[in-house]
Amino acid sequence: AEKTGIVNVSSSLNVREGASTSSKVIGSLSGNTKVTIVGEEGAFYKIEYKGSHSYVAKEYIKDIKDE
């Protein structure tokens, strides 16, 4: 089941290729951006990003809701 969340950062949140802080950064999301969460892996959520799937750190996503 998909969930949505809100990016909870003051500046921007790195979007990564994989579920690791050493993964390549492929983009960023600004605070209060709504994201669609399709899964989770460790400390990361797998999200829909620009037509494919990428990862963001869970600690920076708030207001998780089931869609």
Rank of each mutant, 00 (worst) to 15 (best):
A1K: 13
A1N: 13
A1S: 13
E2R: 15
E2V: 15
E2Q: 15
E2H: 15
K3G: 05
K3Y: 09
K3I: 10
K3H: 08
K3E: 04
T4I: 13
T4W: 13
G5L: 04
I6L: 09
I6E: 04
I6K: 06
I6Q: 05
I6M: 08
V7Q: 02
V7C: 05
V7I: 08
V7M: 03
N8V: 13
N8P: 05
N8I: 13
V9G: 11
V9I: 11
S10V: 13
S10N: 11
S10W: 08
S10K: 12
S10H: 12
S11D: 14
S11G: 15
S11M: 10
S12G: 13
L13D: 03
L13G: 05
L13F: 03
L13A: 14
N14L: 15
V15G: 01
R16F: 15
R16K: 06
R16G: 03
E17N: 08
E17M: 06
E17Q: 08
E17K: 06
E17Y: 05
G18T: 13
G18Q: 13
G18W: 11
A19F: 04
A19R: 01
A19W: 05
A19N: 04
A19P: 15
A19D: 02
S20K: 05
T21D: 14
T21V: 12
T21I: 13
S22K: 09
S22W: 07
S23I: 02
S23V: 02
S23F: 06
S23H: 08
S23R: 02
S23P: 01
K24T: 08
V25C: 07
V25Q: 04
I26V: 13
I26C: 07
I26D: 01
I26L: 07
I26M: 06
G27L: 02
G27R: 00
G27F: 03
S28W: 10
S28Y: 11
L29D: 01
L29M: 05
S30G: 10
G31S: 14
G31E: 08
G31H: 15
G31C: 13
N32P: 05
N32Y: 10
N32E: 09
T33M: 09
T33F: 06
T33Y: 06
T33P: 02
K34T: 11
K34N: 05
K34S: 08
V35E: 00
V35H: 00
V35G: 00
V35N: 00
V35L: 05
T36C: 11
T36E: 05
T36L: 10
T36H: 11
I37Q: 00
I37M: 02
I37L: 04
V38T: 06
V38D: 01
V38K: 06
V38N: 04
V38L: 13
G39V: 01
G39R: 02
G39T: 03
G39L: 04
G39F: 03
G39N: 05
E40H: 06
E40I: 08
E40W: 05
E40Y: 05
E41L: 08
E41H: 08
E41K: 07
E41A: 08
G42V: 03
G42S: 05
G42I: 02
G42C: 05
G42K: 05
A43D: 15
A43K: 09
A43R: 08
A43Y: 07
F44Y: 10
F44T: 01
F44M: 04
Y45F: 09
Y45L: 06
Y45N: 00
Y45M: 03
K46H: 04
K46R: 09
K46I: 14
I47H: 01
I47F: 03
E48D: 09
E48F: 11
Y49N: 02
K50Y: 10
K50T: 04
K50M: 14
K50P: 02
G51C: 07
G51N: 07
S52T: 13
H53F: 13
H53E: 07
S54F: 11
S54R: 11
S54K: 10
S54T: 05
Y55H: 01
Y55I: 01
Y55Q: 01
Y55K: 00
V56G: 02
V56K: 00
A57W: 08
A57I: 08
A57H: 07
K58P: 00
K58H: 02
K58W: 02
K58C: 03
K58A: 06
E59S: 08
E59V: 10
E59F: 08
Y60R: 04
Y60Q: 06
I61R: 00
I61Y: 02
I61T: 01
K62W: 09
K62M: 13
D63C: 15
D63V: 15
I64V: 14
I64F: 10
I64N: 06
I64C: 10
I64L: 10
K65S: 14
K65D: 12
K65F: 10
D66N: 12
D66H: 12
D66Q: 12
E67Y: 10
E67H: 13
E67G: 12
